[in-house]
Design a protein around this nucleic acid. Structure first.
Lengths: 235, 235
DNA sequence: TATGCTTCAAACATCAGACGTCTGATGTTT
DNA sequence: AAACATCAGACGTCTGATGTTTGAAGCATA
């Protein structure tokens, strides 16, 4: 299997600094499974002495590993290898999406492509639990009292998360989940417009129906309709 | 537009630490375009004094921003806002993919889904320059002397990178480019097997032909064939 | 016994200061 | 003009000390 051999840093120095060495050292340990999720690392002082660097340098390395989601630093307690290495996988990615100032059109198109991949993945190897979750959130949405529909957006998110769960491919699942977190504020905003709830329900139902029918053509089309409808509803 | 409101750190402290404050401060400055790509930041000492933290804490923050690809630290020179905020967008993502130990099947399936998205994106709004690059790398590959074909894998990579460039959607383009970097060692290895070069040429040619013909069905099928053929060739 | 409070050691957070090394620019020599 | 020497400024690293937080052990009380 391939390894990440190039530095994650944007430094121009030809030789690695102490901090970089420590960071790569721990990445290597993780790759070789010599340290595992949940493991408690030795204290900063011990680690620094053992690796032959100062505490300051070791701290810089740990902060980097923390930002990458590889370790979790608990003040006053200790530093642990992240329990769930998949969580927030794309947060740095999405942060930079914001910064790059991509147009909303490209963003929507990207989501549509990925969401279509999700339904394809579901059709290829469906996860019954996820499909069940989709049905449940649809029922709840339908049964929702229009008078107090503050939580409707949460059901919307639940539907999409269940959809992610239904996907048999963990990679596309992670990608889609992270993407959802990015769209969450927009989805929440959508439900402030009256009438959008009913529309969302219908659009989501169409996706679900196409999935249980096993119709890829209809499913991808339903995804396209849902996103197009969502964009229109947000205007 | 949505903003990244949650911390990038995996810390359990309820209130932000000094380092986190500094990191978020610069993210905010970037989002508000108060600092721009290429800008030279003040020196560490000045910055630390201005933000009311020690130089050590400021350095930890800068190391994090560097790992996230937001700033570039040049030793002996200064710290700059990254010129290309899109470069290496998914490196942390792919690093963790390695760590999560996903099976090779899921990885290949993921690549296939994304690569199909790339061709769909190309068909939707093609970039002539990228298409031209694809053609060029195919010609070079065909003209390659089988006796010294050490650089064949580079032409393979060139083809895929041109394909990424041909995609009109920057997001899928970035995703695919990062994915390619991940697969590069495997692609390189493939070309050590004799006969694979000819096969790759044919499979790539099929993708290109389908693209210029504007046939989505044929293009996605060609992508599937290429990856399947590649998997078989590597065994 | 079970509960609640206190105490305390360990670990992370931060700071201040010092020195090393590298880069780019300037000046000098050949 | 080209090669070398020098210098200021910036990042890299180290040391040692102090502040804060956490979790658990110990103790007192009901």
């Amino acid at each position: 299997m391939a390894t990440i051999d190039q530095s994650l840093f944007y430094s121009t120095s030809p030789q690695m600094s102490a901090v970089e060495r420590v960071v790569e050292h721990f990445q290597e340990l993780l790759l070789q499974r010599k340290i595992r999720p949940g493991d408690l690392l030795p204290s900063e002082s011990v680690l620094a002495k053992r690796l032959g660097v100062s505490r300051g340098s070791l701290r810089e390395a740990m902060k980097v590993l923390s930002a990458l989601g590889l370790v979790e630093i608990k003040r006053g307690n200790g530093t642990y290898v992240c329990h769930d290495l998949g969580r927030g996988l794309l947060d740095p990615f999405l942060l930079r999406l914001n910064l790059l100032g991509y147009g909303i059109e490209q963003l929507m198109e990207f989501r549509m492509l990925i969401e279509m991949d999700v339904v394809r993945s579901i059709l290829k190897h469906p996860n019954p639990e996820g499909l069940c979750g989709m049905a449940t959130s649809l029922e709840h949405m339908a049964a929702l009292n229009p008078a107090h529909a503050e939580s409707a957006w949460e059901l919307d998110m639940a539907f999409h998360h269940a959809m992610a769960q239904a996907s048999g491919n963990v990679l596309i699942q992670q990608l889609y989940t992270s993407l959802l977190r990015f769209f969450e504020p927009m989805i929440q905003k959508t439900y402030q417009v009256p009438g959008n709830r009913e529309m969302a329900l219908q659009l989501h139902q169409a996706i679900y129906d196409a999935l249980v029918a096993g119709d890829e053509q209809a499913a991808t089309q339903a995804v396209a309709n849902a996103i197009d409808g969502w964009i229109k509803g947000g205007e």
